[in-house]
Amino acid sequence: MDTDASAAMAASHRLTHRLEEATRLLDCIPYDLIALVARLSIAGVFWRSGQTKVEGWHVTDTAFYLFETEYRLPFVSPWIGAHLAAFAEHLFPVLLVIGLASRLSALALLGMTLVIEILVYPDVWPTHGTWAACLLLIAARGSGRFSLDHLLSRRWKTRAD
């Protein structure tokens, strides 16, 4: 074997070793941290959207207008749609932030995401896919240890024992 081939093979082994080390380091990221980041970031997206629909405790005329003209959801009146969206975009993010009923909240917001993607803005699938990834993670694996869900489940388990 010539020197160039040996050097290339040694470099390949070093690169493989470094990639394996990096993978091991990434494997050390705790799920609880990943879940917390997913919960907080997706909650922020929906909370901000909800804030655009309200002034104080009232749904804005702009929100009604958007539901009448741009969103045009089938089978739902613009008045009901605007109220339901404003309510959901405030309630479920708060529940995600505190980690209470996280899986249910994630599924509710995932449902909203699907409606938005399919019926309102189908061309925005990369953004909606990112939202769906966060929500699916929480729905599938739960909220992690930094949540009220975790505290409550521990309390229920000790009472059951």
Rank of each mutant, 00 (worst) to 15 (best):
L26H: 05
V45P: 07
L26A: 12
I98D: 09
E89R: 00
A38E: 10
S6W: 13
V45S: 07
T127V: 12
F92W: 09
D61S: 08
A7Y: 10
V37S: 06
L107G: 02
V59C: 10
A88W: 01
L110A: 15
F87P: 01
I29K: 00
W47G: 00
A140E: 07
F67I: 02
F87Y: 07
G50Q: 03
G56L: 04
R154A: 08
R24S: 15
R154L: 14
G50C: 03
P78K: 07
R159Y: 12
E55C: 09
W156T: 11
D2N: 15
D27H: 09
R48I: 05
G44A: 10
T69H: 15
V37N: 06
S6H: 14
I29V: 15
F75Y: 13
S77W: 08
D2Y: 09
E117L: 14
F92R: 01
L91N: 01
V59K: 05
A88E: 08
L36N: 07
M112Y: 11
S105T: 08
E70P: 00
L84Q: 02
D61Q: 15
Q51R: 13
F92A: 02
G99A: 11
A133K: 06
A133M: 12
V76R: 10
G99K: 08
L107K: 13
V45R: 04
E55S: 14
R39F: 10
L110M: 12
L36K: 04
V59A: 03
A101G: 15
V54Y: 03
E117T: 15
D27R: 14
A11S: 15
A43W: 04
R103M: 06
P30S: 02
A86E: 00
A140Y: 06
T158G: 00
A38V: 04
E70W: 05
L135Y: 01
S105R: 07
R39V: 08
L36E: 04
T52S: 11
S147H: 06
T60Y: 02
R155E: 10
L100N: 13
I118H: 08
S153W: 02
L114R: 08
E70T: 06
R39E: 05
K157Y: 09
S41K: 13
R18K: 12
H13S: 12
S77C: 07
Y65T: 10
A7E: 15
